[in-house]
Amino acid sequence: MVDANHSCAALKDQFGRTANYLRLSVTDRCDLRCTYCMTENMTFLPRKDVLSLEELYRLSTVFINHGVRKIRLTGGEPLVRKNVMSLFENLSRHMVSGELDELTLTTNGSLLSRYAGGLADCGVERVNVSLDTLDAERYRTITRWGKIDRVFAGLDAAQDAGLKVKLNAVAQKGQFERELDDLIRFAHGRNMDLTLIEEMPLGGSASCRSASFLSLGELRQRLEAQWTLEPLSETTGGPAKYVRLQETGGKIGFITPMSCDFCSDCNRIRLSCTGQLYTCMGQEGGLSLKDALRQSDGNETVAQLIRNKVFEKPRGHEFHIGEHDVNGITRAMSTLGG
């Protein structure tokens, strides 16, 4: 049990890892229905079950007081949350004070053209934009109804506002492999990094992942046959391992939860829009902070719950994708934003 008297001590788990990176989901809703993220006919949470933006901010301050230095807003799609900019504005004060090193978000880019300027005003310096293809028809198929021109407009607006953009792409067997070189040239031609992410067995379609799963270890070997990859030691605080392509000067990141364990130095914790605290994306069990938050004027009860939960963080996730078997979890990707 963690000592309750150390209310502002760093959040450490039983294996000595420090949690200083909070991924804060502000909504489970999204304006797209990406096939690897959610089902077409999603049942979203009743609005009464979702924490208010004020409650999410209050919880964020508890994490900040315990040494969290980076907060990434996720969803669903964070920019569909009504008045979400007020949360960015409140959190930005902790950037000004020096309590936070970084405030950022992951977005599908469809609404980025509307919010890019405001995000920059709040101290956001970079954004991750999910984009798996440059082909409008394939984009519509992957997202079920998305319009890629809105994403391109969002990329333009973000860069015009001075935001650094990193593209995220989920690697899958098939057409993605044939398009990857074009995606690399597009990203690096616009001074954007590209991170490739292995597909994870999350949600109702997890059992189908063995057919589409593409190991990034194998994919990297193919890239090495065509490009000159220079390993880099730098990090952005997440699990990606980066290389620089000598031919383009741009960077590619590899996030490999399936083929290469990165749990030993995990610094991340996740909070859902309902106040569920997850210390591992690859585990089912979360801890609700909602009742403690709403039943107390102070934060010490919530803080103690957080400290205890983080201390009990498991050594690693239990994902597995084999040729004939898959071990995943039922929670949809959109619940925590990946």
Rank of each mutant, 00 (worst) to 15 (best):
51 L>H: 04
92 S>G: 14
36 Y>D: 04
28 D>F: 03
93 R>I: 05
107 T>C: 00
90 N>Y: 05
119 L>F: 09
30 C>V: 13
30 C>R: 01
131 L>Q: 08
124 V>M: 06
24 L>I: 09
111 L>D: 07
29 R>F: 06
114 R>A: 12
45 L>W: 01
60 S>N: 02
41 N>K: 15
45 L>K: 11
58 R>W: 02
127 V>I: 11
121 D>M: 09
43 T>W: 02
92 S>R: 01
64 I>A: 12
80 V>P: 00
86 S>E: 15
51 L>M: 01
111 L>E: 05
80 V>F: 08
70 K>C: 10
47 R>S: 14
109 G>R: 06
50 V>E: 07
76 G>Q: 03
86 S>L: 05
44 F>R: 02
84 V>Y: 08
30 C>P: 12
74 T>M: 07
121 D>K: 15
62 V>G: 08
105 L>R: 12
84 V>G: 06
109 G>H: 04
39 T>N: 11
113 S>Q: 02
45 L>M: 15
31 D>Y: 09
63 F>E: 13
122 C>V: 06
70 K>S: 11
56 L>N: 00
55 E>H: 01
87 L>Q: 07
41 N>L: 11
118 G>N: 09
102 E>H: 13
101 D>H: 13
42 M>A: 15
123 G>V: 08
98 G>Q: 11
68 V>Q: 02
69 R>P: 04
63 F>M: 12
62 V>A: 14
53 L>Q: 01
114 R>I: 07
52 S>H: 03
75 G>Y: 10
101 D>Y: 14
76 G>A: 07
28 D>R: 07
129 V>G: 04
41 N>F: 07
120 A>C: 03
35 T>Q: 12
89 E>Q: 14
57 Y>T: 07
69 R>Y: 13
119 L>S: 03
93 R>S: 14
73 L>N: 05
106 T>I: 00
112 L>Y: 07
69 R>L: 12
130 S>Y: 04
42 M>F: 12
108 N>E: 10
71 I>G: 04
95 M>Y: 10
94 H>I: 00
85 M>T: 11
125 E>R: 15
47 R>G: 05
46 P>T: 01
41 N>R: 14
103 L>A: 09
115 Y>N: 03
28 D>A: 09
130 S>P: 09
127 V>E: 02
89 E>I: 11
131 L>M: 12
128 N>C: 01
29 R>T: 12
39 T>R: 09
83 N>F: 06
30 C>Y: 01
54 E>V: 15
96 V>H: 13
27 T>A: 03
102 E>M: 14
39 T>H: 10
83 N>Y: 13
41 N>Y: 13
97 S>C: 10
112 L>D: 01
122 C>R: 12
34 C>P: 13
44 F>I: 08
97 S>K: 05
81 R>Q: 09
125 E>P: 03
107 T>A: 05
113 S>R: 11
103 L>E: 08
91 L>R: 02
112 L>A: 05
34 C>D: 06
126 R>W: 13
100 L>E: 00
34 C>H: 03
119 L>E: 03
105 L>E: 00
98 G>F: 02
108 N>T: 08
58 R>N: 06
110 S>T: 15
47 R>K: 15
98 G>L: 01
69 R>Q: 11
71 I>C: 08
105 L>Q: 04
26 V>A: 06
56 L>C: 07
129 V>A: 01
103 L>W: 12
